[in-house]
Simulated assay, not measured.
Amino acid sequence: MQSGKRNTKGSVVVESFRKRLRLSLPRQLFNGKQKYLTLGLDDTPGNRQIAEAKAKEIERDIQGNILVPGTFDYTLNKYRPESFRLVEAEKSEYPISLNEIWEQFIEHKKKISSPSTMRFQYRVFSNYLSKLPTHDLEKAVEIRDWVLSNIPPESAKRFIVRLSACCDWAIESQIITNNPFKGMSSKITIPKSQKNDDGEINPFSVYERDLIIEAFRSNKFCSKYSRVKHSYYSDYVEFLFLTGCRPSEAIALERKNISSDFRYVTFDCAVVLTDNGLAKKSGLKTQEKRKFPVNQKLKPILERVCEGKNNDDILFPSPQGKTYIDTGNFRNRVWKPVLNGLGIEYRKPYQTRHTFITLALENGLDAKDVARLVGNSPEIIYKHYAGNKRDLFVPEF
Score class of each variant (00 low, 15 high):
Leu29Pro: 13
Trp169Met: 07
Leu339His: 09
Lys348Thr: 12
Glu172Gln: 06
Gln320Gly: 12
Lys35Asn: 08
Pro45Glu: 13
Phe120Ser: 10
Lys131Thr: 09
Gly10Phe: 08
Ile251Gln: 02
Arg48Leu: 03
Pro395Ser: 15
Ser248Gly: 09
Leu278Phe: 14
Phe84Leu: 04
Asn311Arg: 08
Phe241Gly: 12
Phe216Asn: 11
Arg246Tyr: 04
Pro81Ala: 04
Gln34His: 03
Lys54Val: 08
Lys157Val: 02
Arg290Thr: 14
Gln49Met: 00
Ile151Phe: 07
Asp326Ile: 04
Lys280His: 05
Gly32Ala: 10
Asp197Ser: 13
Lys110Gly: 02
Lys192Phe: 00
Val141Gln: 12
Phe17Ile: 14
Tyr94Glu: 12
Glu15Ser: 01
Pro317Lys: 11
Ser377Gly: 06
Gln351Cys: 02
Ser126His: 03
Asn219Cys: 09
Asn65Arg: 08
Ser186Tyr: 04
Leu76Trp: 01
Trp102His: 08
Pro81Glu: 09
Val294Gly: 04
Asp275Gln: 06
Tyr236Gln: 01
Phe159Pro: 03
Val338Cys: 04
Gly321Lys: 11
Pro337Thr: 12
His354Phe: 08
Lys78Tyr: 03
Ile314His: 05
Ser318Asp: 01
Ile143Glu: 13
Gly328Gln: 09
Gln287Tyr: 00
Lys19Asp: 15
Val271Glu: 10
Ser260Glu: 15
Asp326Thr: 02
Gly375His: 03
Asp198Phe: 00
Gln28Pro: 06
Tyr264Ala: 06
Asn376Ser: 07
Asp198Val: 02
Arg27Gln: 12
Ser24Tyr: 00
Arg18Ser: 15
Pro180Glu: 14
Ala279Ile: 03
Arg158Val: 03
Trp335Val: 15
Asn31Cys: 02
Leu298Thr: 00
Lys383Asp: 13
Lys109Gln: 15
Thr274Ser: 15
Arg123Phe: 08
Leu98Tyr: 01
Lys110Met: 05
Thr117Ala: 10
Trp146Gln: 03
Ile314Arg: 09
Tyr128Thr: 04
Ser226Asn: 13
Ser16Asn: 15
Ile213Val: 12
Lys220Leu: 11
Phe397Gln: 02
Phe181Glu: 05
Glu154Asn: 09
Thr327Arg: 01
Asp391Asn: 15
Lys309His: 07
Ser92Tyr: 02
